[in-house]
Design a protein around this nucleic acid. Structure first.
Lengths: 292, 292
DNA sequence: CAGAGCTACTTGTATATCTAAGTTTGCAAA
DNA sequence: TTTGCAAACTTAGATATACAAGTAGCTCTG
């Protein structure tokens, strides 16, 4: 480590790349792009010729380090003060860069602790398999891997218009409305609102919330009601979560969710429709479609 | 409009809800939560008893107005200066609130113009239909509705390991690598990288990029090669886009993407695998799964 | 040794001020 | 009437400062 031979005259950021150093003898020199770390002149990490904003360049540099593995998952970034020193900027742009990377889902920050490269949980696969048996839905998966099912609502209501349309019933028809939250490995991963035509479940064990989670999942439950299932339709959308969903699913910023609208059809009519909100950082939806 | 009868003594935000007004006669009164707009005392819009940060409360208030329709899509928000006046805060929290709403996909901001409630384009449906014929894939849809196909790469390469695995070929086997960008209604909506085993397409019209887009889509193209398609598998993930993808798809902040890994299987072997990156604000993926 | 408490460090929030850069508007000149 | 330009707006970016609040590690005390 060579000791610094120059006094460092840091110009304001908007005047760069005019980095100016003055030697101990008073001679002024301009360098292309030095960076001062402690008392040592080191290689530059951001390109001063880049006309983009300082916070963009800082974010780019950190992103490169993260994606290249120089900053592996779980490792801490330098503190804000350290980044300010390292990039010769001020706290505003540094925090803006951190906010950007957080919104990209690359880092997590924790007050009092620091900023860390986000560990990506392994993606679980949620399958609906038209070839095999169609039973491996989310509810079943949750049960299989020891998840918990939190019952939030389980009551007959008058069908709202979208539900009625999907069940091909007149608006206001009585339906059994069920709301669940699935918790896997201690973390909430899925919210679910589902609706049965009430005449289908009236007087059956499916009317009792204490029977949830039903062993084998919804499809088994339907079959126990004597329903023969012919088809499942799913519409998969993605979006950023609402604040409520962020709260209920314990999501970190920069995590999108799936919104799945699923309808299960029996031979003659739709028998369940549901709306699932699934944490996008934990699941991949897997489909297998046979072509006749 | 009643003229204001009081001088307004704005206390710093962290001291609220101690709003203090002094009458022209010098008497000091405390009000639960007034707000000054211009010269008029108006109903409060944020709850000073709320212990959360000021920017959170501002964001909540604006979000409520947007979701309720008081601020309809396309309408402008008050300017930063206006919001500063309205909420009696400073520019920092106001901008922080705007950043939050932008990351939620609720607003767009344009330098020099203002901040506007985002118009949500209608969601198009991308179907893969196992019941009918399996031909309505993205490529075909793009063609149907008059989209454009931008060819970015169309060349044989040595298969990278993930592609080789999905095609059940040894790593390094020659594959035809194709990269497209789909543009619908003047906006890019999908990036696609797809791979054929090279022996399948060698010496056929499918080897020539000038034949793209193939009428009827990839499945028709495969059938023209004498391939009998039996199954399509799709893994659907969602995430925030990379900066590159944001650029290439022209995405606004707060828009997630789908990442679809699709493999098409013939009777004896996989014949195409592709990785699609789809703008999440434009499409809903629709699946119809028959249950035997 | 166990626990309380202090200290130093971290990120989070709020304020004030300045400059840059893009957009709209209206007025004046051609 | 049309064009050009200046003024007045808008958001974007950077800096400086202050304090709040959470965390970790150390030391002191019992």
């Amino acid at each position: 480590m060579t000791p610094l031979l120059y006094d460092y005259l840091a110009p304001p950021v908007h005047e760069r790349p005019s980095f100016v150093l003055r030697t101990r003898e008073g001679k002024v020199v301009r360098l292309a792009d030095p960076l001062i770390q402690g008392s040592v002149l080191v290689a530059p990490t951001i390109d001063p010729a880049d006309p983009r904003a300082v916070y963009q360049r800082i974010a780019d540099d950190l992103r490169t380090q993260i994606l290249s593995g120089d900053l592996p998952p779980g490792s801490p970034l330098p503190s804000e003060a350290g980044l300010v020193r390292q990039y010769g900027s001020s706290r505003g742009p540094v925090r803006q860069a951190i906010n950007l990377l957080r919104s990209e889902g690359l880092i997590d920050s924790h007050q009092g602790r620091g900023v860390f490269v986000r560990r990506r949980p392994p993606l679980r696969r949620l399958s609906i398999d038209g070839v095999a048996d169609g039973t491996r839905d989310a509810q079943n998966s949750a049960a299989e891997i020891g998840g918990q099912l939190e019952v939030r609502r389980y009551a007959p209501i008058a069908a709202p218009s979208d539900v009625a349309a999907r069940l091909e019933l007149p608006e206001g028809t009585r339906v059994l409305a069920r709301s669940f939250r699935f918790i896997v490995e201690g973390r909430p991963v899925q919210l679910s609102d589902s609706y049965f035509p009430y005449d289908l479940v009236k007087g059956t064990p499916a009317e009792d919330p204490d029977n949830e989670p039903w062993p084998g999942g919804t499809l088994t439950q339907l079959r126990s009601l004597g329903v023969e299932i012919r088809e499942i339709t799913e519409d998969v959308a993605t979006r950023t979560p609402t604040p409520d969903e962020t709260q209920e699913l314990g999501l970190r910023p920069g995590t999108p969710v799936f919104e799945v609208t699923r309808t299960i059809h029996a031979t003659d009519r739709p028998v369940v429709t549901s709306r699932l909100v699934i944490a996008g950082d934990r699941y991949v939806l897997s489909y297998r479609i046979p072509i006749p």
